[in-house]
C-alpha cells in the first residue's frame, strides 16, 4: 500500500481560495460528472422530447392549436426535465455524503450553491436548445426571426428554475420520498417564473405587436434576482448541521 519513494512532491501548503474560485471548482466537478455519465444526460433529452411528442398526441393533430400553445409545451418539457436533472445532481452528493466532504474541504456552502445552481442552468439551457428544432418540427412554429430574443428568454427562464430548484433539491435529497417531494415543492413555487417564461416565449414565437416582451423579460430578471438572493442566503442553513 505504501510506496515511500512517492513521498516527494506530496507536500504543499494548503491555502484558502475565494468564494467564486471554489464555486467554479464545484461547477467544473458537476460538469465532469455529467460528462462521464452522459448516458444519463441522453436519457434526459429523450425524456423531454417524449414529453413534447406526448403533448401533441394528447391534443390531437390540430396544428393551429399546437402552434398557439407551443411556448407552453416547451416550458413544461423543460420544467419536467429540470426535476429529474436537479434530483440527479444531488443524488450524486448524498451517495457517499460527498456534500459533507465538500463542506469539510472546506468549501463555503454558498459556493456550493453557486456552483451547483450555475451548473444546472447550462444543462437545462442546452436541453432547451435541443428541444427547439423539435418544437419547429412538431408544432410548426418559426424561430428564425427571434432567435436572439428566444435565447435570452431561455437563459433567464432556466436560471429562474435552477436557483430555487437547487435549494429544494438539496432538501428533498435528504428526505424520504424525495422523488415526489421535489416536484411537489418546486412546481407551485415556479408558477410565476413559468408564466413569465411562457408569455415571453409566446411573444417571440407569435410576434409582439404591443412590444410587451421587454417588460416580461424584466419581470423574469426580477424573479431571478429574488430567487438567487434567497438561495444564496438560505442554502448554508440547509446543508450545515
Amino acid at each position: 500500500m505504501i510506496d515511500a519513494s512517492a513521498e516527494r512532491g506530496i507536500a504543499f501548503r494548503p491555502q484558502p481560495i475565494g468564494l467564486f474560485h471554489s464555486a467554479a471548482i464545484v461547477f467544473w466537478k458537476d460538469l465532469l460528472i455529467e460528462w462521464r455519465t452522459r448516458a444519463r444526460l441522453n436519457a434526459l433529452i429523450f425524456f423531454a422530447v417524449a414529453t413534447l411528442l406526448l403533448f401533441s398526441f394528447a391534443l390531437g393533430p390540430d396544428t393551429a392549436l399546437l402552434r398557439q400553445n407551443a411556448a407552453g409545451y416547451l416550458w413544461l418539457g423543460i420544467l419536467f426535465a429540470s426535476v429529474l436533472s436537479l434530483g440527479e445532481s444531488f443524488r450524486v452528493e448524498t451517495e457517499n455524503s460527498s456534500m459533507d466532504g465538500l463542506k469539510l474541504a472546506p468549501v463555503d456552502a454558498r459556493a456550493v450553491f453557486l456552483g451547483k445552481a450555475v451548473g444546472n442552468g447550462p444543462m437545462l439551457f442546452a436541453l432547451s436548445f435541443v428541444l427547439l428544432p423539435i418544437l419547429v418540427a412538431l408544432y410548426d412554429v418559426s424561430i428564425a426571426g427571434g432567435l436572439a430574443a428566444l435565447v435570452g428568454v431561455l437563459a433567464l427562464g432556466c436560471a429562474a428554475i435552477t436557483a430555487p430548484g437547487t435549494i429544494y433539491a438539496a432538501i428533498a435529497s435528504n428526505a424520504r420520498a424525495r422523488d415526489v417531494l421535489l416536484p411537489l415543492l418546486l412546481f407551485p413555487l415556479l408558477v410565476p417564473a413559468l408564466l413569465a417564461s411562457v408569455k415571453a416565449s409566446a411573444l417571440v414565437l407569435q410576434g409582439d405587436p404591443m412590444h410587451q416582451l421587454g417588460s416580461w423579460l424584466g419581470l423574469l430578471a426580477g424573479f431571478n434576482l429574488i430567487y438567487w438572493g434567497l438561495g444564496f442566503t438560505l442554502f448554508p442553513r440547509v446543508v450545515e448541521d
Binding site: 429544494y168 408558477v191 410565476p192 419581470l219 424573479f223 429574488i226 434567497l230
Partner: peptide, 17 residues
C-alpha cells in the same frame, strides 16, 4: 427555509398573475 421561500414567492405570484 421552505416557509421563507414560499412566503417570498406569494407577492411575486400575485404580481405575475
Amino acid at each position: 427555509v421552505v416557509g421563507i421561500i414560499a412566503a417570498s414567492d406569494l407577492p411575486i405570484l400575485w404580481f405575475s398573475v
